[in-house]
Simulated scan of single mutants.
Amino acid sequence: MPSKESSLYQVKLKLTCSDLALLQRFEEELKSFLDETSSYTFLRLPTRSHLKTVLRSPHVNKKSREHFVLDVHTSSYTIIDPSNYCIRGLLKRLKKWSGGEYLLTFCERYGRRNRL
């Protein structure tokens, strides 16, 4: 039985979007792909709310203002042992995704290699 060495690298993906339904649809597509290709951890981060204030009429009615609330939904994936196929498929899916932002980080894991 050949021994398999675990990778010393991991990939972190952070998705942010203002539309929760759009984010959930993309997460379902991403989860179905990642279940087939590699092991990962998923974390839904708390929603951040930003309050924006706009003056209705800047010259006459200074006290008349409108308030808008912008909710930002965030989720995070950590892919433990990525393969080349997994990275290529992930980049292909991220290229097609619109409506939000993503941050893709390649990290080096320190420590000893786990031998199976």
Rank of each mutant, 00 (worst) to 15 (best):
L94E: 08
T47V: 08
K95F: 11
R65K: 12
K4P: 03
F68T: 12
I80E: 15
T53H: 04
T41S: 13
K62W: 11
E101N: 13
Y40I: 06
S75E: 05
K4F: 10
K95G: 05
S18Y: 07
V60S: 01
S98E: 10
E108T: 05
V11C: 01
K62S: 13
E66Y: 01
F106H: 12
L55D: 11
V60N: 02
E28Q: 15
R115N: 14
V69Y: 06
L8A: 11
E36S: 14
L70D: 15
H50L: 13
I79S: 04
Q10G: 05
S32E: 14
K52V: 09
R65M: 07
S49F: 03
G111W: 08
S18H: 07
K4Y: 09
V11Y: 02
V72K: 01
E27I: 00
T37E: 14
E101G: 09
P82F: 10
L103C: 13
D71N: 14
P2D: 11
L13Q: 00
D71S: 10
G89W: 02
L23C: 01
R115G: 07
L34F: 09
P2S: 14
S76M: 14
R44M: 06
S39L: 09
K14H: 07
R56V: 11
E28P: 03
Q24D: 07
L104T: 09
K95R: 09
Y85N: 12
H67T: 04
E27H: 00
N114S: 13
K63M: 09
E29L: 15
Y40S: 02
G100R: 07
A21Y: 11
K63F: 06
A21E: 15
E5C: 00
F68W: 05
F42Y: 12
C107M: 15
V11M: 04
E101K: 08
S7C: 11
F26P: 01
V69C: 05
Y77N: 08
D35I: 15
R112M: 06
I79L: 04
L94S: 10
H59T: 13
H50G: 05
L104Y: 06
S39A: 01
Y85R: 12
K92M: 12
L103I: 10
R113P: 10
Q10R: 09
V11H: 04
R56K: 15
D19Q: 06
L23V: 02
S64I: 12
L43D: 13
S3R: 13
K92W: 06
T41C: 06
L30T: 00
K63V: 07
D71C: 07
R109G: 05
N114D: 13
L13F: 00
G99Y: 05
L116W: 08
L103P: 01
D81C: 06
T47C: 02
L30A: 01
T41R: 10
R88W: 05
Y85K: 12
F26H: 01
C17K: 04
I80K: 12
S6M: 06
S76E: 12
L13M: 02
T41V: 05
Y102T: 04
C17H: 02
H67P: 00
L55H: 08
Y102C: 03
F33Y: 13
E5L: 04
I87A: 08
W97M: 09
L8V: 09
V60L: 05
F68H: 05
F33N: 03
E29R: 14
H67V: 00
V69I: 12
V72I: 15
V11W: 04
L13P: 00
V72Q: 07
K14W: 02
L45D: 01
L45F: 02
